[in-house]
Simulated assay, not measured.
Amino acid sequence: MTISNNSLTRRRLLQVSAAGVVSVGAMGLPRPARAEGYDGAFTWISPRGTLEVLDDYPFWIGKKMGYFEGLDVDMQPGPSDGTATAKFVDVGQADMGFPSPGVFAFALENGMKLESVYHMGARDTFSLAFRKGEGPTNIKDIEGKTILLGSAAWQPIVDPLLAAQGVDVSTITYVEAGWPTWGTALAAGQGDAALAWEGLRAEWISSGLEFEYWLGVQHSPLPANTFAVRAADLEDEDKKAFLVKFLRGWSMGLEFAEHNPRAAVAAVFEQFPTLGSNLSPELGTTSILQQMNVFRGDFEKREGWGWHDMASWQLFFDLIAQISGDAEPIEASKVCTNALIPGANDFDVEKVKADAAAATLSPEMSAIDIESIRATMFDQAI
């Protein structure tokens, strides 16, 4: 599907996204037990159509270490439609989604009563991949070019990313090249660039896709993916208490990885052996280090894991309004909240450090040189 930038509004994403309008029950989410305050298990839904990635490592290491003990949590991959992570939360088929800022804005503009409660992506994770030797020295040279997407719903990710750099996004043509084949399509000579993100860079290397990248994590002032829930759930004290407990476990998983990233990789590989067989310990560690950089952000300036930088979010919403021609941008302070962040960070950091230090590793994982990977993490950047 080729999409002219001028023809795609946020509302039209409901028509062109892969799954279309949500059909309640389409995902068939199991709800085997009861989570406090919820009708069944608390269901978290991925934006990728799969859980077999390293991106959600805080949950898998937290599950292994017992940081979610007593919480009934159901992790779901969801459809590959990029907007499903918001739409299924809105209609009650899931309780928390992990949308990109663009998909979150799309949801709000389409009347979904959602609120961001935990900002995972403190730095902009998104990037543009180019065939080697074809990346522009100035990102404004992308004007007039074609960008490949895995889903049409990803356009609201790229538009503000480029607009923040002064690019006239009305000149960009987007092509929906399909999930998970849009990177392969770029390598085969289709399009001029492809959307990518931190962590995915390492996974693409493992599948033989060698690109160079303009990295948002180095250049973009915008936020990345966040945890969104129904706004009404924040008015229910039982649900709010459950959310704090869940987010505390997630924060502990993030903290653990800071002190032993290799053990976090190993926990994901134990959960998904096929992923472990496809990614080497070195590439798995490279992927998680890329993502840790995004999730941590400038931690000294944040008020804990999950804290929203409202200025960054407002800049994003202002750009969305500018691109779409809306008179009034979304107010970040009305749709993003830091109310749960103190509780989500109320844990014994020293205990988590001790847990990380005590973790055992395989000889193969122990041999991975963390500092060597960090030193070369941006070698693909243009």
Score class of each variant (00 low, 15 high):
residue 44 W to Y: 12
residue 290 Q to K: 07
residue 136 P to H: 07
residue 285 T to Q: 06
residue 281 P to K: 07
residue 65 M to Q: 01
residue 1 M to Y: 15
residue 159 D to W: 08
residue 193 A to D: 02
residue 113 K to G: 12
residue 363 P to Q: 05
residue 224 A to C: 11
residue 76 Q to I: 04
residue 103 V to Y: 11
residue 246 F to D: 02
residue 305 W to D: 00
residue 285 T to E: 06
residue 12 R to L: 07
residue 237 E to V: 12
residue 136 P to I: 02
residue 154 W to N: 13
residue 206 S to C: 09
residue 248 R to S: 05
residue 311 A to T: 05
residue 257 A to N: 09
residue 17 S to G: 10
residue 88 F to E: 07
residue 145 K to D: 08
residue 283 L to G: 10
residue 126 F to E: 04
residue 299 F to H: 03
residue 24 V to L: 10
residue 103 V to S: 13
residue 373 I to V: 02
residue 315 L to C: 08
residue 39 D to Q: 15
residue 124 D to T: 03
residue 14 L to I: 03
residue 94 A to G: 02
residue 167 V to G: 14
residue 187 A to Q: 03
residue 300 E to F: 09
residue 329 P to C: 10
residue 84 A to P: 15
residue 67 Y to V: 00
residue 141 D to I: 00
residue 146 T to P: 09
residue 87 K to Y: 14
residue 301 K to G: 06
residue 373 I to G: 04
residue 359 A to S: 11
residue 332 A to V: 02
residue 221 P to F: 03
residue 174 Y to K: 14
residue 319 L to F: 04
residue 201 R to H: 11
residue 365 M to W: 14
residue 320 I to Q: 14
residue 80 S to M: 13
residue 344 A to G: 06
residue 83 T to S: 15
residue 50 T to N: 15
residue 41 A to V: 02
residue 368 I to Y: 13
residue 325 G to W: 02
residue 282 E to Y: 11
residue 247 L to E: 01
residue 269 F to K: 01
residue 40 G to L: 07
residue 351 K to I: 00
residue 349 V to A: 04
residue 245 K to Q: 08
residue 47 P to R: 03
residue 358 A to C: 11
residue 177 A to N: 01
residue 324 S to W: 02
residue 193 A to T: 01
residue 275 L to K: 01
residue 15 Q to Y: 09
residue 188 A to D: 06
residue 232 A to I: 13
residue 277 S to Y: 11
residue 31 R to F: 14
residue 89 V to W: 03
residue 55 D to Y: 12
residue 46 S to I: 05
residue 152 A to F: 01
residue 354 A to G: 08
residue 139 I to A: 01
residue 104 F to H: 02
residue 235 E to S: 15
